[in-house]
Design a protein around this nucleic acid. Structure first.
Lengths: 225, 225
DNA sequence: CCCCCTCCTGTACCCGCGGTACAGTTTCGA
DNA sequence: TCGAAACTGTACCGCGGGTACAGGAGGGGG
């Protein structure tokens, strides 16, 4: 039971690395079993076909992805009470995490699936779609909290702004990989951070450190419930 | 001579559509010859192997891509003299072009190659890299012109900002395809446009249409509002 | 008019890979 | 010690990428 899970994980590890470098169509089962040190029969014991492997691979990737965002943004939330500052810190932490990856970001499975769509069944395409929608909800939730406090300088649709986070991440990965410049991705996240700051930070030159105490003071003096 | 070019083009057309939907590894030569109505030998007369097909496909795609950007931004340049307004108009035109695509953007070959890298030779990877660098130079050139006139509200690296355009496009394509929401890509371009406007437009609340006459009036009359 | 070059078609073949089928073996916990 | 889980081994199928030629249509130039 435990042993089976371990082998399965090892196959998924090898497969994930291969698929991110060569796509699903470019990754052969034979090379996976060679690298895992398993036999073909052993492989098909765990996954009945390539589609099932893709399914497991994608689900695991998405779960892990969600876990990472949960960690980063909840840590940012702990450190900063203000929703805007917390989000900005989260983006900072994310960019640091990305620039710490030794060989750059290995690639996003969601994008890989997206560029291979026609050869997967509807279930995988739905899973992929839901992953992107989950990103939209996640970042949208945080952005709505921000907008409750800070009116944006320009009118923006919150879902579109949330999608911008995903766009910059996906696009940044493509750029980083293509250019072979691992840092480009982290820089793009920081550029997005600049956008968010610009969009929500009050028009005064100095950041919140100056503005907020005034607001808080005013509220306290004015008599809140 | 003419006939050969025509067949070659037909193969490339079929191949491009297939590759954008299924990746290189997922596209078989057999399906290409079936759809073009050519024989296997005929195919290999034009392209000695799949790598050569990819090379031709990528080069053609990049050329076409460059042509489109040339057209859009030179038209925007003709209509607007101010570099910022011209760039903003260019992004508007681009987003309109993208939202007019009947079935949404079919996908970017640069991204496809990026997610298939390991199975191509160094030449293709270099071609791909150069395409992204060309985008950086193109948008960088326009952004530099803007920065000569308008100081950005936040300090930004011009190359990173130029890359942001590519990021949002590449990421927007992935989102649009995955979500099966053709409009998402166009919206992302407009969101980027908001960022650029916010970053460079003078701190006054009203946009140029209102601000400019007032400035002109003030300069002529010698008095301040 | 014929020759040659371009642009193919047809045939035959090799091998790697996805996938199936199924029999047999190890390992390990209940 | 029994049985299920987790494999191995072997044999086989058909498709797809790719090679190797041989040959044919069609047109333009000498």
């Amino acid at each position: 039971m435990r042993k089976g899970e371990e082998t399965r994980t090892r196959i998924l590890d090898v497969a994930e690395a291969a698929v991110l470098q060569k796509g699903f169509g470019g990754t052969s089962i034979e090379e996976l079993i060679a690298e895992t040190g398993i036999t073909k029969s052993g492989f098909f014991y765990h996954f009945k076909d390539k589609n099932e492997l893709a399914k497991a691979l994608l689900n695991r990737y998405i779960e892990n992805d969600e876990r990472i965002y949960d960690e980063i943004f909840s840590r940012a939330r702990d450190l900063m009470d203000d929703p805007l500052q917390s989000f900005l810190l989260g983006l900072k932490l994310l960019s640091e995490l990305l620039s710490d990856l030794p060989n750059g970001h290995p690639g996003c499975l969601v994008a890989t699936v997206c560029y291979y769509e026609r050869l997967f069944d509807r279930e995988i395409q739905e899973t992929n779609r839901n992953a992107v929608l989950a990103w939209r909800r996640r970042f949208g939730r945080m952005l709505r909290e921000i907008m409750d406090v800070y009116p944006p300088r320009e009118p923006v649709d919150v879902d579109q702004l949330a999608d911008m986070v995903s766009s910059v991440l996906e696009g940044g990965i493509v750029l980083s990989k293509t250019l072979k410049e691992p840092n480009t991705l982290a820089e793009q996240v920081l550029m997005l951070r600049t956008f968010v700051r610009l969009l929500f930070q009050p028009a005064v030159e100095q950041p919140l450190a100056v503005v907020r105490p005034a607001q808080a003071f005013g509220a306290a003096g004015g008599g809140q419930p």
